[in-house]
Design a protein around this nucleic acid. Structure first.
Lengths: 198, 198
DNA sequence: GATTTAGGGGACCGAAAGGTCCAGAAAAGG
DNA sequence: CCTTTTCTGGACCTTTCGGTCCCCTAAATC
């Protein structure tokens, strides 16, 4: 009886996500979303509801995937390797000459969180999740011996969490990969030893 | 002959600055700016030009003042005291229950920098200025002995610069002052010794 | 192939966006 | 007190915003 949907809902959602990730919420117009998804206005509204609902769906998809990615990246090899892998990945974004996206959660912490409780809650959860995952990884390192610093896992995690937005924001602002690598090298050195010989 | 301007241009600029700082560029409408400044539309356009020009003027005023503030805060007492004073001030913003503003340069690194070269240049300069000022302060500490870490001044400065956006973004996202203080305590501890006994 | 049902393109809408402009009012100088 | 100048308020304009709705079309079943 019924006709089948011609487009892939999930794909469309991810195209919309790309637009919101690049330009933020306010600066992304419906026209942008239609172009990004390739949908007609009625299809978009039928499937995703209003702009704000679409945004929240896209944001949640982003958060879910990034959470999984982070767990995966942290989990293979030694804890130290996992942590380095996680942070190196962030900086790789800066190497692409075109648009710099940074981390959408950080971007939204700046744009929407101050005036939108639903976004604020998500962002707060994300900060907490990052801290917990990093703490877990560093805890694991105390077993595998890959981190030689004598600081507590919680303290090291705090330093990493505190630096995470810095790397993401600099990436978004277009700081060169070289400079970011240098920041990251310094950051990671706090895991290895407490008084680096440089 | 001529009639005198009834309002104080600088005051009006700062009221506009407040609006842009709170809501960002896109989300601040002309109506918001008129309400914030108390000016009529024609006065605002006569004195400040279009929205974008007004924004850049306000942003530059912000940057200039924050630069002076930072120099002043870093300069009195020991270098270590100056650095702590500078960072404690950031976290104080989080104590106010109403709107959280964060650092406008960081906010703009997220919002405008990716698509606006003029904003990007300013933001890049600000990152560099913060790094240079902090490096200078830590250099000074090597003379006054207030920082006991054996890391290089440049490395310590990098860790502080990298953490600066984190504190600002968390402030803007509404993270509690307690949590921010705890992050800051950990951050400042890297200045004091390389293996804190905790 | 007819019927049924939902998808899709786009016309249409009111509101609000940023921006222009003009007429009137008010102050400073002569 | 009159003239000149410019500041001020608000009417007005165009465009774009997010959002609704309808009609035609196309597919799946019988």
């Amino acid at each position: 009886m019924a006709r089948k949907q011609e487009f892939n809902t999930d794909e469309a959602l991810h195209h919309a996500l790309g637009a919101f990730w690049n330009k933020g919420y306010e600066a992304t117009s419906l026209a942008d979303l239609l172009q990004a998804t390739g949908l007609s206005k009625s299809s978009l509204y039928n499937v995703f509801g209003c702009k704000r609902e679409l945004f929240l769906s896209a944001f949640d998809a982003y958060r879910k995937e990034r959470g999984s990615d982070m767990i995966e990246m942290l989990s293979s090899g030694t804890a130290r390797e996992g942590i380095e892998r996680f942070f190196r990945k962030i900086v790789m974004d800066a190497a692409s000459p075109d648009f710099h996206r940074g981390c959408m959660s950080i971007n939204q912490a700046v744009e929407m969180a101050p005036r939108d409780p639903e976004v604020r809650d998500r962002v707060t959860q994300d900060f907490q999740a990052i801290e917990d995952l990093l703490t877990g990884a560093i805890d694991r390192a105390q077993t595998d011996g890959s981190i030689s610093s004598r600081r507590t896992a919680r303290d090291l995690a705090k330093l990493l969490v505190l630096s995470f937005p810095g790397l993401q924001v600099m990436t978004r602002a277009g700081v060169s990969k070289n400079r970011l690598d240098s920041f990251l090298d310094t950051l990671l050195s706090i895991l290895d030893q407490d008084a680096p010989a440089r």
